[in-house]
Nucleic acid binder design. Structure first.
Lengths: 197, 197, 197, 197
DNA sequence: AATGAATGAGTGTTCATTCAT
DNA sequence: AATGAATGAACACTCATTCAT
């Protein structure tokens, strides 16, 4: 099959340094925290001098915001894909939970920033980060609305219970233990027992 | 006991500045985060110069550890008292959850450090902080062990679900909404529905 | 080789600020001592802010080591040149002594640090400074080994006597008195003559 | 001879804490240098708080001066005693040299400060320290004047040679090697013998 | 697109010193 | 004679940022 057109031909490395920088920033923010990471650290990680970062980003805060956004994008993408593969409401919720957890945990430098970074740390970008969080959360709100539940169940608290527990997971999660999929299933099992009509 | 001279009674002032400093540190650590709070900030909050803090604490990290310990002490105290007032296992767990949440929100300066501060930020005190966390968690482990549950329920995941959700609550909790007691009841209701044998 | 464009020839300006900083540090270390000299002092001396020094040097200790090395380099260079100009062993020793003394006094900023600074003050660089001292001393060891001396003379003590006296000289030396060459000759004369009547 | 008045009856431990403090200061100044030793270090060494030192001394500089004076007193005492035991000029000089060296080396916290501390470090006390040094040096000047020497020998340079070498000795001296007495004899032997073949 | 050099404000911490008790 | 608490200035060093080249 000669001459097959170059597949996708993804945009010819347009500003690939920016992506590199963002990767480094994401990793370092997760490993050391936002404040403990210096622009020099990030620059060194990609073989640059710290001043050069400013050609690509206006400020450190902007980097945080960019990491945050990219993290949200990736988690949302993973969750959306997982949900689309299922039709039954409880299975959709379980798939979403598993994808969320997997993204949070499996070396996802980006997505952990989403959880770990208090919007307060972002300084001026605080508002935009809060918005991003809310947008993402919306997905779980909808998945839970779609469940068939006994009328006395408060769907808001069901969501807070599940979503809170998921977000807290990176605190206790250890690689080598149960996979994100198993954790999600256990959580849902615990909630679903007899909750279904 | 005539005429015995009043036993000095000299101002008890047993290092009350240390307590003041700790209060200020707790509040600022919560409001701005550990890294974003400077020793000068803390000193100014109690009308001192930054160097003077070092008479009372050896380092900033030691302050964090002290706040952490005090936070753990307060939450543990509240939870222990609440649990002692009940006998039925589910009510004991609910009382503990409510007290935990209330402490997290009421003494928020101290106890939120417990939740918000990654042990990693504590530098040398990392190990001791991890120990404190584990000790505290032990309480919930026991309360859940005491529940009568259908055999297929995994008590570990029940604990992780509840405890995670509780710890995540300060993120969304707004004063003026449901009280900590209501939140705790809703969480437990959601879990208990039909979970009981 | 037609038309080859002049090879850029861009300003060689090879970090001349580093040299300036080192000069200032050397002078201040000599005048006030290492501990009594602050980075601010050094920075001010070259019209910089103290933080800017760290672009050129990693730490204050590294500056001390650099001054030390440069001092050793200059003295060694002077001594080697002086020695090379003579052939007769006693004259070689005298030339070395004069050059050593002259360097100690002429380049005093640099070379006195060599004499005045206790390796202990250098912290981490202690070992390297001890090595530099030993290397330099080696020169005098050899020059004395080359002397023809009565067998009962202990060459080690001859060296310690001469080298110690030379190094101690900056303590009492005043410009305007005898030149380094005269001092060296007098020392050697004193050693070389039969002193007892 | 009954009733002979108590001999001297040296003031009954008047201010023995001052002496303790001075001992600690002397030791620490020698071990770590003047600048690197803090008032807290000295206070802790005698089980005091740093503020309490100021009851005994006006300032850190005053402590340095006191240590210096006491050092000079002790070395001078040792040298005077040694010299008094001899009559022959060369032996007197040798005895003085040995006593000087022994005082400098044999754990004499006080006397090393005399050599190691640049008068410059003493701040305001600089002048008094220079005077003390000169007074002490006077002893060697006289001992050398008493020597019978060939007329062409410059006594000043003989003194500078010997005294410089002695003062430089602590730099290379290692306990376990030759005793101070041996070192002094070797130095004098070297000077006294006809060196040329 | 990146560098080299610097800025200026800030960091945690140390220190000699003071002083009421 | 000494303490407990604080001061205020200084210290070495770091950092996000700037900007001419």
């Amino acid at each position: 099959m000669p001459n097959s057109p170059a597949p996708a031909l993804r945009a010819p490395r347009q500003d690939n340094r920016r992506a590199q920088l963002l990767d480094a920033a994401a990793r370092l923010f997760r490993e050391q925290g936002f404040h403990a990471t210096s622009m020099r650290d990030i620059a060194k990680a990609v073989g640059m001098l710290s001043g050069s970062i400013y050609y690509h980003f206006d400020s450190k805060e902007e980097m945080l915001l960019a990491v945050y956004q990219e993290g949200e994008r990736r988690v949302a993408e993973a969750v959306d894909a997982a949900v689309a593969a299922e039709t039954e409401p409880w299975r959709r919720l379980e798939a979403a939970s598993a994808a969320h957890l997997r993204a949070l945990i499996a070396h996802r430098d980006y997505s952990q920033v989403m959880i770990q970074t208090s919007p307060r740390e972002a300084g001026g970008a605080e508002g935009r980060i809060r918005d991003l969080r809310r947008d993402y959360e919306q997905r779980f709100r909808r998945l839970i609305d779609d469940l068939k539940l006994p009328p006395e169940i408060d769907r808001r608290y069901l969501r807070l219970l599940l979503f809170g527990a998921l977000n807290w997971s990176p605190i206790w999660y250890r690689t080598g233990g149960d996979s994100p999929e198993i954790v999600a299933r256990r959580f849902l099992d615990t909630l679903r027992k007899q909750l279904e009509v």
